[in-house]
């Protein structure tokens, strides 16, 4: 079985649990590092971003709440979130996120219809990637401003109010509750209009660009804050790279570090060239890069100090041909990272 098949199974299992698990009494708590939307009726877990914005458990807490038992509960939720991030790193996005799976199916449909994927220039891509930091800034600052009385109280859960996942995921389960404009007051009307526009853009975007929403997702920023703690990460040995571009081409996040240039000072000496981590901000931990790399030991997936997968010509040849050889290639010849 290939990593891709494992991932495919994992995504579907998590989709079912996180979208419908609550109906069977399954609850994975409010600290999940993936977009498990609480607005889906019967969801099996809650995205930590929702908790982070909450006045009673997140950034909007005032001193009274913070010093009470709720403060400890909030800290425990944060601790759990950090522990989960440390355990799986950015693979939460690639392996468990229900909205990630929805986007993957949109890309599959596009490929089935043989429609060309949108290509952004480097400048456009850089601009789009900054938007997630804007979203994240909006998400963390608004609850604080509300607590200080500097923002309208109806902006509590500010990011959820405009998050496309809130509209699209319930729609997938047949729930149209959020498909409307809220005329209660100008603030709610504005947020509901933004929600509609944002959702529309994301629906179109995810069809023409693989994992388009991930480029804008503030969860990846939050997960990225704990990058030094990742146990699971992808490393590249630049001195082993032949620069064929396979890894970059299959990277849904267009991470350009997949083909790093060798420092001329190293004089191609392996001892002087350090492995480069590819688990940077934006990486979704899908491991497509490592599977498609046909150079022995150029890319490796490490869990803590252990290399659990090394790229190899043998694995890539079988993987790209369509045959699976995960277990055979689990310990490829390039076990050096």
């Amino acid at each position: 079985m290939s990593i891709r098949t494992f991932r495919f199974l994992s995504q579907h299992v998590f989709f079912l649990i996180l979208t419908f698990g609550g109906r069977l009494g399954v609850s994975l708590g409010p600290s999940l590092p993936c977009l498990s939307c609480p607005y889906v009726v019967g969801c099996g877990g809650i995205c930590y971003l929702r908790f982070l914005q909450s006045p009673m458990g997140g950034l909007g807490m005032n001193w009274a709440v913070l010093s009470s038992g709720r403060g400890l509960a909030a800290l425990a939720a944060l601790g759990l979130f950090i522990a989960l991030v440390a355990l799986l790193g950015q693979s939460w996005c690639g392996w468990t996120c229900p909205f990630g799976l929805v986007q993957d199916y949109a890309a599959r449909l596009r490929n089935k219809l043989r429609i060309r994927e949108a290509i952004f220039t480097e400048r456009t891509m850089a601009f789009i990637k900054t938007l997630k930091y804007v979203c994240f800034g909006y998400l963390v600052s608004t609850p604080v401003l509300i607590t200080l009385g500097a923002a309208h109280p109806d902006l509590s859960l500010p990011y959820c109010a405009i998050c496309p996942v809130k509209l699209i995921m319930p729609l997938l389960t047949g729930d149209t509750t959020y498909l409307n404009l809220d005329f209660t007051n100008p603030v709610l009307l504005t947020t509901s209009v933004v929600l509609m526009i944002f959702s529309g853009l994301v629906l179109v975007g995810m069809f023409f660009k693989t994992r388009f929403f991930c480029l804008l997702c503030p969860m990846s920023v939050l997960i990225g804050l704990f990058r030094p703690l990742y146990l699971l990460r992808v490393l590249k040995r630049p001195q082993a790279c032949l620069g064929c571009g396979n890894c970059r081409r299959v990277c849904p996040a267009d991470i350009d570090k997949t083909t790093p240039a060798i420092d001329p000072g190293s004089n191609c000496n392996p001892a002087l060239v350090k492995p480069v981590t590819l688990s940077t901000s934006g990486c979704q931990g899908c491991f497509n890069c490592a599977q498609c790399c046909a150079t022995d030991g150029s890319l490796a997936i490490k869990y803590g100090p252990w290399a659990i997968f090394n790229s190899s010509r043998r694995y890539a040849a079988r993987f790209l041909k369509g045959r699976t050889a995960f277990f055979k290639a689990l310990k490829g010849p390039g076990d050096r990272l």
């Binding site: 043989r114 429609i115 994927e117 064929c244 081409r249 083909t259 498609c292 040849a317 790209l320 041909k321």
Partner: peptide, 25 residues
């Protein structure tokens, strides 16, 4: 040159993948 990895299966995507694989590899 090695197996060609493709993520975009449109004609343009396939041509790009082939072009890159043969040049960069």
């Amino acid at each position: 040159p090695g197996p060609v990895a493709v993520s975009d299966e449109s004609f343009y995507g396939l041509m790009t993948a082939l072009s890159q694989r043969y040049q960069l590899g």
